[in-house]
């Protein structure tokens, strides 16, 4: 077993940012341990493969017609064959709905370990943090050569109340899904010579018949992916004020989320709910507007890098989970903030 596979997922005509982040950490790790980075594209993503030039040692393009449009049955079949053939030591996925259909079934089929929600990956013993560098050579855990080193993978458990770091033995197969923004896409140099390999072997047909697909506006997909999330809580009062959230989000090229209080009141859709029973987001910047900071909400956003809270109540719990706090009326602070952001970024 050697090398790392990265499952390259796109949204429309561009790969998800997570794809580039995972390719970068894979390059950093293989630079330290030998082995190759294989970028796997399947079905609709095959057409985008030229964007991966230089980012991996190899692009593996799975071209069977059953893989377009995406269906879990066909993808599981094609990926299982590809993984068995290449026997990588780990396969990296971006967290998301599609990953959660495919990865667990692959693990069951291949007898592999699967971990969701991961936020860090490094060579055992290497002193690196999240979006930092993976240092070569030091394989603390095994004491052997670097290419036999164990991998360490970290993730939050119990809604982020604790983190666990697992040690993946060098001879085991790990399938791991990473939250967006877990790594810096620039953490390892690109410029590799990329070989392209196409595999057209037939794969199983889907047993699931697609009757209808309703893709929402672009915002729907953006929430878990976005680098900036602006969330409104009950302090936003009603939909007549949601435009203030959208304006700020637009100025920051971010997405809008809502607390459960607004969703349960029928004022916002569940697809945009942030928190324990909604979406988990992990953006670079999270701005909570009129959100009290109930633990169920915190569980959905606490891995954000920088948190800003705007609340009229200086004792609101959200301030305990924030880096920056503004005490004030969201209806006044938001327009001022949007204006300042526009001025600063234009």
């Amino acid at each position: 077993m050697s090398g790392l596979y990265v499952i390259c997922e796109a949204r429309g005509e561009e790969f998800r940012p997570a794809t580039y982040e995972l390719l970068a950490v894979a390059r950093a790790i293989t630079a330290a341990t030998d082995g190759e980075v294989t970028a796997v594209v399947a079905g609709p993503e095959v057409a985008l493969k030229s964007k991966l030039e230089g980012l991996a040692h190899r692009v593996l393009a799975l071209t069977a017609p059953e893989l377009t449009p995406f269906s879990a049955d066909s993808w599981v079949d094609a990926l299982a064959t590809a993984i068995e053939a290449g026997s990588p030591r780990a396969v990296l996925f971006g967290e998301g709905g599609r990953t959660r259909e495919v990865m667990p079934r692959l693990a069951a089929r291949l007898g592999a370990w699967a971990l969701s929600n991961c936020v860090d990956l490094r060579v055992s013993g290497a002193a690196a943090a999240g979006a930092g560098s993976v240092e070569a050579g030091d394989s603390g855990a095994t004491g052997g050569a670097a290419d036999g080193a164990a991998l360490e993978v970290s993730r939050p458990v119990y809604g982020g109340k604790a983190y666990v770091t697992n040690l993946v033995p060098a001879d085991g197969l790990l399938l791991a899904a990473f939250r967006p923004h877990s790594f810096d896409a620039g953490m390892a140099p690109a410029g590799l010579t990329t070989a392209v390999e196409e595999v057209a072997a037939p794969v199983a047909a889907s047993r699931v018949e697609l009757v209808e697909r309703r893709e929402g506006g672009p915002r729907k997909a953006d929430l878990t992916e976005a680098a900036v999330v602006v969330t409104g809580g009950r302090g936003m009062k009603g939909p007549e004020n949601f435009g203030l959230l959208e304006d700020l989000a637009a100025a920051l090229e971010g997405a809008v989320g809502y607390s459960r209080a607004l969703v349960d009141a029928g004022l916002a859709e569940h697809a945009f709910q942030v928190g324990k029973s909604g979406k988990t987001v992990s953006p670079t910047l999270y701005i909570a507007c009129g959100v009290s900071g109930a633990i169920h909400h915190i569980m959905g956003m606490d891995t954000a890098k920088v948190v800003v809270a705007i609340n009229i109540d200086p004792t609101a719990p959200i301030f305990e989970y924030a880096d920056y706090g503004v005490v004030g009326d969201v209806l006044q602070v938001l327009p001022a903030l949007t204006e300042q952001v526009r001025a600063a970024t234009s």
Partner: peptide, 13 residues
């Protein structure tokens, strides 16, 4: 079912 970016209706045997 909810999917990334929307909803879909599927029929399973």
């Amino acid at each position: 079912r909810e999917i990334d970016g929307g909803e879909e209706v599927v029929r399973l045997p």
